Simulated scan of single mutants.
Amino acid sequence: MRNYKIAVIPGDGIGTEVLAAGIDVLHALARNGDFAISPQQLPWSSDQYLHLGHYIPDGGLERLKTFDAIFFGAVGSEKVPDHVSLWGLRLPICQGFDQYANVRPARVLPGVTSPLTNGKDIDWVVIRENSEGEYAGNGGRVHRGLPIEVATETSVFTRRGVERIHRFSFELARKRPRKHLTLVTKSNAQRHGMVMWDEIFYEVAKEYPDVTTRRELVDAMTTRMVLKPATIDVMVATNLHADILSDLAAALSGSLGIAPTANLNPEREFPSMFEPIHGSAFDIAGKGIANPIATFWTAAMMLEHLGEAKAAARLMKAIETVTAAKVHTPDLGGTATTKQVTQAVIAAL
């Protein structure tokens, strides 16, 4: 029997609640399958940071390398500045394990209502370059507190980094029925890095004549997502642009509570990390009403990455059965609790 060793990092806020639900569902799925999961929880969180002064302990990344995948909840605390928590936990894993392809599917699940009248046309995949760009961390501050204080934040685009995310995007678009890929850019204003981003896209495009392409400025892309969702299939964008667009995609699909993410190292030199995109959600943490659907969909993406496509499909079918039955948490207009949605998905399995 195949046994997958999963590092579980619940993190902060509702991350602890939804990841516990996700593990319950994975165990239920494995009981009726021909594989097993061995989850190991790591207490890397803002509480640990406040107590010990670090998110990831010495040797933490080396320890993570021994796992088949990483299941991540959320990071962020009202007691810790956001840039400290993000750079203390999530980004060291993504960048340290070269998880350069961030994949975020978006579609309106059965029984879920989109705020758009044409929301049924949403069937997208947002691909985010996840290792460099605007989140490279290149920059600094000098003369702090003085009138001449200066802060710089420099986007970094490398030919290797840009080429590989474009090639990944073309490969994914080629596997989908429409075979359509939108290049999201801002090269009219950012004339160096973004112009190179565009040029490399069209160089790679020559290798994929079966994929139809479109170029769209990022500001125009937001309006296209709202007004003409049927014209979009797969989109590829930089670290910052795709971060923003994928949250919009989730909201247009009904809720951030249903949106999954995979942080992939496609070459499988390191374990990949799978996380729902909703964040730690301080306002509802501890109330038992966090939507676990994003976590379950994320778990399905993890299973697919691990080679368990049949189990992933079973889980997605169970998710859609539950959403179609309108067993919804408050973010989707329902009254169900996290536990009730979890129980319903397990029953559907």
Rank of each mutant, 00 (worst) to 15 (best):
S187H: 15
V142Q: 11
E199P: 05
V142N: 07
L217E: 08
Y202S: 04
S169H: 05
Y135R: 04
Y208Q: 05
A220R: 12
V156L: 09
F170M: 06
G140I: 02
H180E: 10
I122E: 05
L172C: 06
T154M: 13
W197E: 06
R167D: 14
T154A: 12
K179L: 10
G140L: 11
F201G: 03
V204H: 10
S155I: 01
A173T: 03
N138D: 14
T117E: 14
V162A: 05
H143N: 14
R214L: 10
E149I: 02
V226Y: 12
Q190S: 08
L146N: 02
W124M: 09
V226P: 08
A230I: 00
E129N: 04
P177V: 04
E207N: 13
A220K: 07
G193H: 07
N138V: 15
P177A: 14
I165D: 05
V226Q: 10
K206C: 12
I127D: 08
V162S: 07
A205D: 01
K186A: 10
T212A: 15
P115E: 03
S187T: 02
A173M: 12
G111Q: 05
V204G: 04
N188V: 03
S169N: 09
R144V: 09
K206G: 13
A173W: 12
H180I: 00
P209E: 08
M196E: 11
H166R: 02
E171Q: 15
K179D: 10
T212E: 15
R174W: 13
R160G: 01
S131D: 04
R128P: 04
V211W: 10
I200E: 01
T152R: 04
Y208F: 15
K206W: 10
E163P: 04
L183Q: 09
I165A: 03
R214D: 12
F168M: 06
G161H: 09
T182K: 06
Y135E: 02
P177K: 14
V204W: 08
K228H: 15
S187D: 14
R224S: 12
W197S: 03
K175Y: 06
H180P: 05
G145Q: 02
A205T: 00
L217V: 01
V195F: 01
A220Q: 13
T113W: 03
G193L: 07
G133V: 01
A151F: 07
P110E: 08
Y208N: 06
I122P: 10
Y202E: 12
Y202H: 15
T222D: 04
T154C: 11
R174D: 15
G161N: 03
Y135M: 02
V125T: 13
Y202G: 03
Y202C: 02
V162T: 14
E207C: 08
G193I: 01
P110M: 05
S114A: 13
T213R: 05
L227M: 14
I122C: 11
M196I: 02
W124E: 09
G119Q: 03
M194C: 07
M221A: 13
W124T: 01
